[in-house]
Structure formats: structure tokens, C-alpha cells
Computed example of a mutant assay.
Amino acid sequence: MSNLYMHKTAFLVSSHEITEPLTIQFSVPFGDNEKVDTIDISVYNLKDDTINAIATNQAAILSAGYVDDNGVIFSGTLKKKETKWEGLDKITTFKCIDSSLDYTSAVIKRTYGRNTSASLILSELARDAGLAIGDIDLPVDFIYRSGKALNGKIKTLVAEVAKDCEAKLYINKGRIYVRDSKKGDNLALDISKETGLIDEPEEIEEEAKDEKGSKLNNDKKKIKGYKLKMLLNHRVTTDIIIKLTSKKVSGVFRVSKGEHKGDTSGQEYYTECEVVPV
């Protein structure tokens, strides 16, 4: 990775692209749980005409990285915008979610016949929510022998079916993932001092989970992992498999959760994540 300090940030929302030299601040969390994350993106001294022209409930995409290596770190929906003054600065904060609004609020009432598979139901619920499918790879493709009646919010119904399949569930960049709790995506991503690792990995203990993603109560069932901090890396996200090389730790790990944080005025521009052994 070259030009590590020549960062490049772009926020595309409601057909408007906001870029530097405007100051853009962001916090983008990610993780392998069913929570729908809220993302705050703040822009300093945006023109009133632009603010007024940006409509809520529209697609929002944030790209970040460096001049010759940047990519999407968030893709979701703008829920709310608000503007306030701090001294001479006018700060507009865009509050977004990493899914469609239909996923969190739409209600479905539908009945499936006997011997319907969970994979079919999940695919159709993803379609109803307007979500692309990142991966539906079920540990158990549960068969509803007596049929299945759905009545409720899509988000709740998806979680219910995922539990029946002993699978973890999460949304990432507008895509739905329902898969084995230990599965990840191997991008042959090397993390080291040479590729932006800032500090030595910090040892942590993460609660072990069963096949359904529920925490185990046995204290001995804790997984040793590490917390990493690196220069912002748009490729690092939920379930990415990385090869970590440092003075104290080397090995292959899966990213379980983390956050991209940025301030284009130069205050911060990094990625933190927690990883567990593969």
C-alpha cells in the first residue's frame, strides 16, 4: 500500500457526491451479529442548497481509503439529517443504517406450505426487504414439515428462521448474510506493519458461541483473540479472513467485529477490529 497518508473520502447520498476538501467525519461499525448498525457521517460547512436537496430514505454510500487504494466501507440508507453550529462551523450529521428501511420496519404476512425449506423463505424475505444476498449458506437448511406462517417485521422473521438453521445473521453493506458462525471470506488479506498495522495486537478474550450464535456460559469456553489497529483499510470488514504478521503474533484469523473511523481534517483515519483464530 502506497501513499498511506494521502487519504480519499467520498460520500454519495441522494445523487449528491460530497468529497474533500470539505471536512468529513465518520464512524462505521461492523460485526457478526443481527444488530442493524447506525452510522454517523458529519460534514462541515456544507452549502444550504445541498443540504436541502438531500432527501432522507435514500441510498447512502461512503467510500474511504487512499489515493490509489480506496473502496466502499458503508452502503445503506439515510434515515435522518440534522444541522447545528459549533462556533463558526456548520455541521450537518447524516444518520444512516446499514440496511434498507423495509428490513427494519416492513411487516410481512404470508403462509408457506408443507416441506418448505428455510433457504427459500430467507431468500424471499431478503427480496421483500430489498437486500442483496451476500451469503445464505446454512449449517442446517431447516425444513418446515407442517408449513410456516409468517406474521411480523421482516427483521424479526429473518432472525427466527436463522435461529432454526443454527446460523449467525448479520447485514453488511446492504447485503444479508446467514451462515455458519465460524465461516469467513478469504481474500488473502495480509495485515502487518508494512501494510498499515499501527500497534502490536492486543490480546482479548471473546465469548465462545454455539452453532446458533448464542454465548456459552462455561468460562472455559472463551476464545483468545486480538484487537488490531491499522491505517484505514476498506477491505477489512465482518468475516474477512486475514493473515496477521507482527513481532508477537502471527497466524490466520477471522474478523468478528470492528469500526472504521475517519476525520479528513487529519485528526484520525484508521480501522480497529477484533479477530479470532480460524
Rank of each mutant, 00 (worst) to 15 (best):
V36M: 14
E205Y: 15
A64G: 09
G251I: 04
T38R: 05
V278R: 05
E17N: 07
T93W: 07
N233C: 07
E82P: 01
A149C: 02
R127S: 11
K209M: 12
L197H: 04
S181A: 10
L228Y: 11
D141P: 03
G134F: 07
A188N: 11
A162R: 04
K243W: 06
T237D: 06
K84T: 07
G262E: 00
E203K: 06
Q267E: 10
V36A: 11
G130P: 03
I176L: 14
G258M: 06
S100C: 09
S123R: 11
G71K: 08
E211T: 05
T77N: 05
I242Q: 08
T83F: 03
I24S: 03
T271F: 08
V161L: 14
K95C: 02
Y103D: 09
V67M: 04
N3L: 15
K248L: 09
G134M: 07
V36S: 12
A55E: 14
G87A: 02
I97V: 14
L189V: 15
L12A: 12
S181I: 09
V161N: 13
K257L: 00
I61C: 08
A129R: 05
G65Y: 05
E124G: 06
L244A: 10
I24C: 01
L187F: 15
F253Q: 01
G196V: 04
N172A: 05
I136L: 10
K81Q: 10
K222V: 06
A159Y: 14
L62I: 05
L189A: 11
A106P: 01
K8C: 12
I204M: 06
R175Y: 07
G258L: 01
K215E: 08
H7L: 11
I51L: 10
L189D: 08
I121E: 07
E206D: 13
S99P: 03
S99Q: 08
P139Y: 03
K183D: 12
K220Q: 08
K243Y: 11
A149I: 13
I61E: 12
A167E: 09
K182S: 10
K84Q: 04
E82I: 01
Y5D: 14
K90I: 02
L138I: 03
D98Q: 08
A188W: 13
N33A: 10
A208Q: 09
D135E: 13
K84Y: 07
G225R: 04
D141R: 03
E86R: 03
T92R: 01
N52H: 13
E82V: 01
A53F: 14
Y103C: 15
A64Q: 05
G147P: 03
N172K: 12
K148F: 11
V107K: 13
F11V: 01
V13Y: 06
V276R: 00
K215P: 13
A149Y: 15
S123L: 10
T264Q: 03
Q25G: 06
D185K: 09
S250F: 04
I24K: 00
S214K: 15
Y44N: 02
D135M: 05
L62F: 03
